[in-house]
Amino acid sequence: MKLSVQVARRLLLAALVLAVWWAASSRVPSFVLPGPYAVLQAFSSLLHTPTFLQDVGATLARVGIGFFLAAAAGTALGVVMGASRALADFLEPVVAVFNTVSSAIWAVFAIIWFGLSDASTVMVVFMTTMPLMLTSVWNGTKTVDKQYVELAKSFNLSRLQILAKIYVPTVLPSFFAGARLAFGFGWRVSLVAETIGASSGIGYRLRQAADLIQSSQVFAWTILLIMFMLLIEAGVLKPLENALFRWKPSPE
């Protein structure tokens, strides 16, 4: 499809959404559904709030730390479970249980254990994303081709070299897919955690806005978060994926 046609379609869709939004908002009170213009105003005042950068930074740091710890622990456990069948069979139910516990429950426990602090949010992010990373990496280790290992042995590669040159490249796509999923999850649950277990950060501001029924504020934050995620997707994840996995035949 031509680029110009694609752009035109996107613009048309955006215009339609705005029109429907505007039409709907003009028929209901603004605390139920604020109009596009009110949201735009809220958005610009949000950017000029003195605590804006602090809030975004606090949330980012919590998500980042939780995600980093989860990636490290999940990868290590996934590799161990991939290496030992017995251990994998033993631990599998625990993974299943962790995957079924709601992030809201973790948030409640986090408050009981850590109170209103950074650690609460970090814990919720960790608990939600760690099982995802573990499962992805564990599945990745199952796809290691025994024939490649045999090949490596025929060339006298050491165990460490086999790990680095055969296992790591095989597991990398699963790791990446898991990390992408986990980061998205972590980002979303961090807001849930912050609404109840923090005194700063985006989630905390969202709760303040809700308490004061400032719907336009909530909308402004939402738009900001969407923009942020799209930016990460297009600016970091996609290019990284393209660079890392050039060796895969393109799906067409």
Partner: peptide
Amino acid sequence: EDRLLPWRTVRDNVALGLEA
């Protein structure tokens, strides 16, 4: 089977034994 490592270029595949 040729067992070429799919994530390596031809050059890097051939180099495997020398890397070891």
